[in-house]
């Protein structure tokens, strides 16, 4: 067994780090969960959602892109940072139509699970934008409800880097930026139900749906029925 190349500190705890590792990768390996939405195992880091924001050496950075460094002091689970994270998640709820009670992703949804983890029990501040985007149901096996999209870009990276297709991409700028398909609708792309980008694990919410399988998993057996988001990382700690 080789010795760690260096150590750094997260929330007062010294953890091992390797050259080239991000703060999040080192934290995951040490069993420390840093909340995230756009980052996903096997996809390149993006640093877009900012839910993984931490303070490293006094600066706010995204833990999924910031390299770990020797003796770096990182703050993650502080009331101030968690408040920022909760505000970000709250804005996502207000920006889309996230009706958990009727959504087939409920219980498997990372946005919902993150809201629970961050104790976002009720909307408080912003107005709901209430988008009215038509569902794209053109594909025989896949449906898109972009009213639920949080623009995490995981499907874009999965399609480009894993499937080598480019079915999804961003369009628009600023508040109008949206994930769109590379065609008039999904049926006019080369999307397939076997694509990694289409798999349930890539879309963190109920936007990309495999048709006719919704609600087949009973309540009690859904992903976050077994524990809060991040419990697998926290439960996997060797400390």
């Amino acid at each position: 067994m080789t010795s760690p190349d260096f150590t750094f500190v997260i929330d007062g705890r010294a953890i091992p780090g390797k050259p080239g590792q991000t703060i999040m990768e080192a934290a995951d390996a040490a069993g420390i969960y840093i909340p995230r939405l756009c980052d996903h195992e096997g996809l390149r880091h993006q640093g877009g959602c900012r839910v993984c924001t931490v303070k490293a050496a006094g600066r706010s950075v995204s833990a999924c892109t910031q390299p770990a460094a020797p003796d770096l002091v990182v703050e993650s689970e502080t009331p101030h940072i968690n408040k920022l994270r909760r505000d970000l998640v709250e804005m996502l709820f207000h920006e889309g139509n996230h009706l958990c009670p009727i959504c087939e992703a409920s219980g498997n949804c990372e946005l919902q699970a993150m809201a629970y983890r961050l104790d976002m029990t009720a909307p408080t501040k912003m107005p709901y934008l209430e988008p009215c985007r038509e569902l794209d149901v053109s594909h025989p096996d896949i449906a898109l409800d972009t009213n639920r999209c949080i623009s995490c870009g995981r499907c874009i990276r999965a399609s480009q880097d894993v499937d080598h297709k480019g079915v999804f991409g961003y369009v628009g700028r600023g508040i109008h930026r949206r994930v769109a398909v590379n065609g008039s609708d999904l049926a006019h792309t080369d999307a397939a139900v076997t694509d990694h980008a289409i798999s349930a694990e890539v879309c963190p919410v109920g936007c990309i749906l495999r048709k006719r399988v919704g609600f087949a998993t009973p309540i009690g057996e859904r992903e976050f029925d077994h524990g809060p988001i991040g419990h697998e990382i926290e439960g996997g700690s060797s400390d």
Binding site: I102, E134, L135, V137, K211, R212, V213, G214, F215
Partner: peptide, 11 residues
Amino acid sequence: RGRLLWEVPVI
């Protein structure tokens, strides 16, 4: 109207 058929019993 416009919702997916398997969502209906839940909605």
